[in-house]
Every structure is written in C-alpha cells, then in structure tokens.
C-alpha cells in the first residue's frame, strides 16, 4: 500500500509539471488554434538560462525568477518576430515554423551548453522540518509551487483587465479589435506567459530528469497527452489532465510488465486513444463546424 501511495504522490508531482506544460500548450492553442511544438525546447532553454545564472553565483530562487522573466520576454519576441509572418498562412506552414524553432533551440542549447547531462539544484530545501517516507521534499515543493502558479494564472485571467482583454482576443479577435484591444500584442503576451509557465515546468523537472538538451521531449509528449485528456479548450481540464497523466504514467511503469521501458509508447497510446474516442477531451467543448 505504501508503494502505491508513493507512486501516486510522485505521480502527482510529475503530473503537476506536465500540467504546467499542458497549460502552456493550451494557452497558445486557445489564442491561436495551434499547438506549439517548440514549447518543450523553449522550456529546456529557459532551464539552461537558470542553470547559467546559478553557475554565476545567483541564489536558486533568484535564478528561477530571472529565468522566468527572461522567458517571458523571449516568448513575446519570438511571437512578434518569428511567428507573426505566418499568422495567416496554412496550418502546415505554421507547424513547420514551430518545428524549425524546436530544432534551433535544441541545437543551440547543445552548442552553448554541450550535450552532457548536468545536475540541477532543487528549489526546495532538503529538510522541511518533518519527515515523510511517502514523498520527498522536492516533489512536495513541486506540487505546492505549481498549484501556486496555477492560482496566479487563474487570478490573472479572471480578475485583471489585461487578462480579460487576452480572453476576448482569443475568443473573438474581430470584435476584440473593434473595442480597441490590440489582438496582435495580446497574442504576443500569451506567448510570453506560455514561455514563462513552460520555464517553471522545465526548472521543476530538471532536478528529476537532469538537465540536457533532449530532456523535454518526453515531458512535452506527456504535456500534450495531459492537454488532450483534459480538453484543449479548457485550461482547468489541461491541468487536471496533466496530473492524471503523471499518476497513470507511474502506475503503468510499476504495474504493467515492460511499462517502465515503454513510457513514451504509453503516451502515444494515450494521445491516439483520446483523439479517437473522445477528441474534445474530458472537459473540452465539442466544436461544431458550419459547412
């Protein structure tokens, strides 16, 4: 029973990281109807930035906050400079631009920081003042921090003017433009926020999987799976989906023979399964298209 609880709690911790990535994916999807395939690599890059700052002597938390801020700026710039020219192009062209970004971030990270794996310090102290055999301090911190981030994001969209404007720009760009919202800048802001949230995910996952340029491939896949499971049109659903996927991943790894070696295949099956049997996800709305 202890093992089961340990697995579940560790799954929730990993799952909350997937939630971050899923939320980042859903934010861009809501605003632009596209999955950002480069989301994982952007998060990886942010994590390297944090690692460099730590190496320069910055305290871990300061490095974390700076990296999140830098990611925000980078996200805005990427949207304005690289994604904007294909805003109205066919889906294929946009996907190709995302994949180009993915490749560039991956290669440049390997070029600057090399492909050797690096340990990354945890944001949380080893000693929390109490001991538990069920969950480690880092995992506990991850769950707490992501819940905090999610609450902030929710509050931002629910209670601020900018958040409202961003929602309007995503829901109905034309009407939003008519009431004076700069839809283009709202998109850029969305990219910035997504990049920041992704950065949180990357920095939280790095102490677990170690830092290397390919560390996010699996995480991104699980993030996608979480986003789809929860429903790509529902941010709350994406968060829950990420958590469920994290827990499922751990259960499958432990209880299904061969499961620990085939974790990515499990993500594949999950993605295809959700898309085939419940394309709108658990909490998404079904899109009906007019002919």
């Amino acid at each position: 029973m202890d093992l089961f609880l340990q697995l579940t709690l560790a799954g929730l911790a990993i799952g909350s990281i997937y939630s971050c990535v899923a939320l980042a994916v859903v934010m861009i999807y809501q605003a632009t109807d596209h999955f950002n395939f480069a989301q994982g690599e952007m998060a990886m890059f942010s994590t390297y930035v944090a690692w460099t700052l730590v190496g320069l002597g910055a305290p871990v938390w300061l490095a974390f906050l700076l990296a999140v801020g830098i990611s925000f700026l980078a996200g805005v710039i990427i949207e304005r400079v690289i994604v904007k020219p294909v805003e109205n192009a066919p889906v294929l062209n946009q996907i190709i631009v995302f994949i180009g970004l993915l490749v560039i971030f991956n290669a440049v990270a390997g070029w600057i920081w090399e492909f050797t794996i690096k340990p990354f310090p945890s944001l949380f102290p080893e000693d929390l003042g109490f001991k538990s055999t069920l969950i480690g301090p880092h995992h506990l911190g991850v769950i707490a921090l992501t819940l905090g981030v999610l609450a902030l994001v929710f509050a931002f969209f629910r209670f601020t003017r900018v958040g409202l404007a961003m929602r309007a720009a995503a829901a109905n760009p034309d009407s939003a433009r008519l009431v004076g919202i700069s839809v283009g800048w709202m998109l850029a802001l969305g990219w910035g926020l997504a990049a920041s949230i992704g950065a949180v995910g990357g920095i939280l996952v790095a102490p677990i999987v170690y830092l290397e340029p390919n560390m996010m491939a699996g995480v991104l896949l699980y993030g996608f799976a979480g986003a789809l499971l929860g429903g790509v049109s529902s941010p709350g659903g994406a968060v829950l989906g990420g958590l469920v996927v994290g827990v499922l991943e751990n259960w499958v790894g432990q209880y299904v023979p061969g499961g620990s070696e085939l974790k990515l295949t499990f993500a594949l099956i999950l993605i295809v399964g959700v898309l085939v049997f419940k394309p709108a996800g658990l909490f998404g709305r079904v899109v009906v298209r007019r002919v």
Binding site: D33, H34, F35, F37, V91, I95, A217, G218, L221, F224, A225, L228, E261, L262, K263, L264, T265, A267, L268, I271, V272, L275, V276, P279
Partner: peptide, 23 residues
C-alpha cells in the same frame, strides 16, 4: 478522425516513441 493539427500531434507522438519501441 483527426484533422490537421491533431494528426500532426499523433504522428509526432509516433515518431518520438519509435526509438524506445525498437529498443
């Protein structure tokens, strides 16, 4: 049942999972 983006996503997952399956 998948269009455009979703198909891209499913095939993306297939590509990422392939090396692990082969091992």
């Amino acid at each position: 049942r998948l269009e455009g983006l979703y198909l891209a996503l499913a095939t993306f997952a297939f590509a990422v999972a392939t090396p692990q399956l082969l091992k």
